[in-house]
């Protein structure tokens, strides 16, 4: 424990080194970054907030009249239910990916170098294919005359095809599949950096393997998990392709609600309000998460 605190303190020292008051030259160097953030992050955000506070005209235009009606409309059990379900599904996705990614990343980090590269490559290969195409591939695998059902039926294990696709379960499967690599990579990086001598020291001091894991390995690799949670939870919360394609659009999540407002309902105002609330919830959630798991300095 002492060791991990020392390490953390070292990390904090490095951070404060960078945070010295910046000179004019440094600001100048950062100008491209400021511009980028200003134009592609801040400006769209301002526009979204603006839309969420204006009146919708009957044909879907925006009238520059201040209103809170779109936020008031969200204060409806119907939409609360959608937010709640999305949250639940994103949490489930995150927990399942952690449980699957951690052992895999651990094994990966402990594999001899030449296999390691191959395994790492295999876990990244799916990224070379478009996400939409991979989702369609899952649909081919799961549909009633798809790979799984055909195999089970030819083995005589089932008589009728199982309803595998277009269920809440297939949505969860699609989410876990899609986000798993985002959890594996940061955890792998954290475990790979872990100093083996620390584990040896723990063993020398009489810790059993599970104690070493619980009190040394896990705390030291927690930043990797934290990064993975960020990479998985936040996008999973706004996902709309998976529930539409693999869930048969029978389950509405926040992502679907928002997408729908911008496309078919042509209600940019309400869609913007829902986006703002979603962003606020994410920021709030991350703050609580950070405090609860004492992750200051991680993000």
């Amino acid at each position: 424990m002492a060791t991990s605190q020392t390490l953390a303190r070292q990390g904090a020292l490095n951070v404060s080194d960078v945070q010295r008051p910046r000179s004019v030259g440094a600001h100048l160097l950062l100008l491209p970054a400021y511009l980028w953030l200003g134009i592609f992050f801040l400006l769209p955000l301002v526009i979204i907030v603006y839309y969420s506070l204006t009146v919708r005209t009957p044909l879907g235009g925006s009238e520059a009249v201040f209103t809170l009606e779109h936020y008031a409309r969200l204060w409806d059990p119907l939409y609360a239910r959608i937010f709640w379900r999305s949250l639940w599904l994103a949490v489930a996705t995150t927990v399942i990916t952690i449980l699957m990614a951690y052992p895999f990343a651990y094994a990966l980090a402990r594999t001899p170098q030449r296999w390691k590269n191959l395994l790492l490559l295999l876990s990244v290969i799916p990224f070379w294919t478009n996400f939409l195409v991979r989702t369609y591939a899952w649909m081919v695998i799961l549909r009633s005359n798809g790979l799984v059902n055909t195999a089970l039926m030819s083995l005589g294990l089932i008589e009728q095809p199982l309803p595998l696709l277009f269920t809440p379960g297939s949505v969860l499967l699609g989410l876990v599949y899609g986000f798993l690599p985002f959890m594996i990579l940061p955890i792998y990086a954290a475990i790979d950096r872990l100093e083996p001598s620390l584990l040896e020291a723990a063993a020398d001091l009489g810790a059993r393997p599970w104690q070493t894991f619980w009190r040394v390995t896990l705390p030291l690799t927690a930043p990797g998990i934290a990064a993975g949670v960020l990479l998985v939870f936040v996008p999973a919360l706004g996902m709309f392709i998976i529930p539409d394609l693999m869930g048969g659009a029978k389950v509405t999540l926040i992502g679907n609600l928002i997408q729908n407002q911008f496309l078919s309902a042509r209600n940019w105002q309400f869609g913007s309000a829902a986006s703002v609330v979603l962003m606020a919830l994410v920021v709030l959630g991350l703050r609580l998460y950070k405090r609860f798991f004492r992750l200051e300095g991680v993000f």
Partner: peptide
């Protein structure tokens, strides 16, 4: 036809069906 203000109502009812 475009439903004007009623479009928002239809959208809400549709969300109810889906939710």
């Amino acid at each position: 036809e475009d439903l004007g203000d009623m479009a928002t109502v239809v959208d809400r009812l549709w969300t109810e069906v889906k939710a």
